[in-house]
Every structure is written in structure tokens, then in C-alpha cells.
Design a protein around this nucleic acid. Structure first.
Ligand code: FES
Ligand code: FES
Lengths: 144, 144
DNA sequence: CATAAAGAGGACAATTTTATCCGAATTAAA
DNA sequence: TTTAATTCGGATAAAATTGTCCTCTTTATG
């Protein structure tokens, strides 16, 4: 469904959100450990998230990654997916035609677009805050 | 969503089904041309579909690929996806945890499982015949 | 200012996926 | 029985994704 990079990116963002709610910055080492991902690769993905304004980074001593507290409830999982995997999962043809075109639909188009819309709505209506709070309560997990 | 191999596999199966309804066998060359896919790679995928009993092959002169007419309406897209991509798209965790476990859910689990169930139902209830008939009518397309 | 603790970014390596090629096996038909 | 038309399967190559490493830059702090 999503690339590994995207999976790590979502998990990392939730972990950063959780910590930002408690005013803690976190670095790639701690993030990778907590989400069970390769550290250097995760750092690369974090760079992409910074470039796409999903997370902020603070360089230098006592630096790390954080998300503005006021943004945590408005950043949607869709924003993260779009930043890393692009919008093919929302817009692309399920059977891999060059584009999904209502006027020249593939055989799965009518059925596929319903599922895709459902996925899109789910990702666009799920914010980081609610996921971070569930995690904080211990109801959900980021690894294993 | 699906791998390239799976996309080609589904498109190829629909094309074979369409031709089998008209008692024509088709070879990899014609298939690749009609679904706009790389020929040798498509042939490899067809082998996998044969091994998984989605399509039949007839070797030798006047051979080719076909699907038993009586099977066309009972073969579901889910069967093709499972044969090529496996069942991760149905069963796997959306955030890439080792397994999707109701008792140790990832943060997206509750929302993700609904979309995944929808996708599963769609794939399991869509048969080759209906797709092949739409294609025959010219309502849908397999390339570009 | 000097130093140490961070992220940024480029080069590189490993793995997986996608794609190609070619010889062997199979079979209908001449 | 020979031939030509086929699929099958293994080896290989190319491209994309995943993952690692090392140096540069930035910045808080002594
Ligand atoms: S054309 Fe294939 S999903 Fe729309
Ligand atoms: S645990 Fe992640 S989808 Fe179920």
C-alpha cells in the first residue's frame, strides 16, 4: 500500500507529535529506536518531511525534530503520504494505466474509485494529534 | 497499491478472459501489445498465473493462454492479486508493523482496517466475466 | 572564541522489483 | 518424422527502493 519510507515517515511523525505535545525534541537515533526502523534511512525521510513542512528541525546542540504544537491537530496523515509517496495512491489508476481518466476508464475504474475515495477520506480526516493521544494512552503501538 | 507485475497480471487476465469467451487463445506477444506491457515480463507473470491455476496454457503450435469458459465468472480479481502480490494488501499492517494484530494495534489500525476490508470485499466480489464484458462493449480500456 | 552536539546532504552499497534474453521442452500439422 | 510455433524456466541486466557512511554546516554553551 505505502512504501517503507512512507510507513517509517508516518510512524516517525506520530512519535515526534507525541513528544512535541510534551515539549520534547527528539533525534533520529531515538526515533529509529522507538519505531524500530533503520536509523540513517529514517534520518533521510525526516529530511524530506522537513522540506515538506510536516516537521520542523532545529540544528546544533540540543537540536532535534519537533512539530509546532498548534499544527499537530491540523497535520493529516494524507499530508505525510503526499510528501513521501506523492499522490498516486489517491489519483492513480488501480491497474496502472498512465492516468485514471473518467472518460477512458480501465475495467476496474468504477469499483476502484470508490475504495480509493474511502482511503483518501480516511487519510485526509485523520490528524496526528488523535493518533499521538491514543499512543500516549498505551492503546496503540509503533513497533513489533 | 499493487505491484506492476500484479497490474499487468490483472489486465492480462481480463484480456485472456475476453478472448476465451470467444474461443480464441492468445499468446504473450498479442497480450503485451493489447495491454501495453513489456512482453517478456508479461510472459513471466503469465507463468505465475498458470502455476496458480488462474489461466491455462497450451504449449506447442496453436498454443497460447486461455481460461475455461465456465471458470471465467468464478475467478475473482482477488485470486489474481493473491497469486502475484500475496495477501499482504489484505492482511498486512498499513504502517508496516510485522503483523496486523488486533491486540497490539498500530495507531492507524482502527481506521485502516475499515478501508482494507472495503478493498478486500471489492476484490473478492469482482469477477473476470463482468470486467471482460464491459471491455467487449467498449465501455472500458486496457491501455493508455 | 573553541568545542561539542546536533541536522543536512552527497556518495555509495545492498536488496528488491522490473525487464530482457536464450535455450529446452512441447505439440500441431505438413 | 520433420518442422515450425509455442510455452517454460533459468540466467542475466537495468532500474527503483531501501539502507549506510562520512563530511559539512549550524548552533548552544562554556
Ligand atoms: S482508470 Fe483505472 S482506476 Fe480510473
Ligand atoms: S496493526 Fe497496523 S493495521 Fe492493524
Amino acid at each position: 500500500m505505502f512504501s517503507k519510507a512512507c510507513e517509517y515517515g508516518i510512524r516517525a511523525s506520530i512519535f515526534i507529535a507525541l513528544n512535541s505535545l510534551e515539549h520534547r525534541r527528539v533525534g533520529p537515533k531515538e526515533i529509529a529506536k522507538e519505531i524500530n526502523s533503520p536509523e540513517a534511512f529514517t534520518a533521510k525521510i525526516l529530511q524530506a518531511l522537513v522540506r515538506n513542512n510536516v516537521v520542523n528541525s532545529v540544528k546544533g546542540a540540543h537540536g532535534g525534530f519537533e512539530i509546532d504544537k498548534k499544527d499537530i491537530k491540523t497535520i493529516m496523515i494524507a499530508d505525510i503520504v503526499k510528501a513521501i509517496d506523492g499522490d498516486n495512491v489517491y489519483k492513480g489508476c488501480g491497474l496502472g494505466l498512465h492516468e485514471c481518466n473518467e472518460n477512458k476508464p480501465c475495467p476496474m475504474h468504477e469499483k476502484f474509485k470508490l475504495v480509493r475515495a474511502e482511503l483518501k477520506y480516511m487519510l485526509e480526516s485523520t490528524d496526528l494529534e488523535s493518533l499521538a493521544l491514543d499512543l500516549k494512552l498505551g492503546d496503540t503501538f509503533l513497533k513489533v
